[in-house]
Design a protein around this nucleic acid. Structure first.
Lengths: 131, 131
DNA sequence: TGTAATGTTTCCAGTAACTGGAAGGTCAAG
DNA sequence: CTTGACCTTCCAGTTACTGGAAACATTACA
């Protein structure tokens, strides 16, 4: 599959896909004409990168997560340890998103342009009050 | 409150806090000695920025979200419309995090170093299978 | 009260993660 | 057989920080 097709399927621009190859996240085959040739597995990885980057994981974290799948030599305990660390981060991110969701719902429901300086929205948004 | 203190309370490095001021996200007072002086409201905003940046919102999106609070002149319908758009994104992010969570839990529970090339983990991670 | 450590300032340069554009090769359609 | 869409590499620009230097402010302690 050519890069344009992989781009559509993954949601990542071709530029970004080439960049990910440059930094060694992905090594697609090359066709005889020099074009990159993406397998379904490559596309899965790209889609995964598209998602996890959008969720605030750094490229290096994504590299670790991909390695969980790719590094078949890695000891089981290592895999589990990294996965558990990421699971904690994911829990935290979900909680924070829920609080933000709550706050915005409140904003939509109750604040109709007449916010005063003491509007408690920001306290809630910032997670410093009991939202 | 000095920048070091604001840094501790918000979780953002002083460098980043100054950068956010440079790009106009925040305008703390200045003390007589020239030091930045952060109010509790400023700290709330910083903490909010720390969170929402970590959740994959761009600086411009954060600016919009902060503006929901700050721009008291903005019409109610505008506020609600922006908030609703963000709420949809938040829903999506939460779903994606849940899927990633699911996949990693599966990895911790079942894949003990013997993943074969056909291991369905990546399909799940990338959200292209029914996870 | 001196002085050393710590904290703050600005400025400028470097990094991470893209993003845009030029110059040129490839391919499918008419 | 050429036009247009797609691909290649390379190099420069952008976003969002991050590190370091030089100088001024504050605090801590003998």
């Amino acid at each position: 599959m050519n890069i344009g097709n992989a781009s559509e399927k993954s949601g990542l621009p071709p530029k970004t896909i080439r960049y990910y190859e440059d930094i060694g996240l992905l090594k697609p085959d090359r066709a005889d004409n020099g074009y990159r040739d993406y397998s379904m597995s490559d596309v899965h990885k790209l889609k995964f990168l598209q998602r996890s980057r959008g969720l605030g994981f750094s490229v290096e974290e994504c590299r670790q997560l991909l390695a969980l799948y790719e590094d078949k030599e890695r000891a089981s305990s290592d895999v589990k340890s990294i996965a558990r660390t990421k699971l904690k981060e994911i829990d935290r991110k979900i909680s924070e998103l829920r609080e933000l969701q709550h706050t915005l719902q409140h904003l939509v429901a109750h604040c109709h342009g007449d916010q005063r300086p003491d509007c408690p929205i920001l306290e809630n948004i910032s997670g410093t009050a009991d939202a």
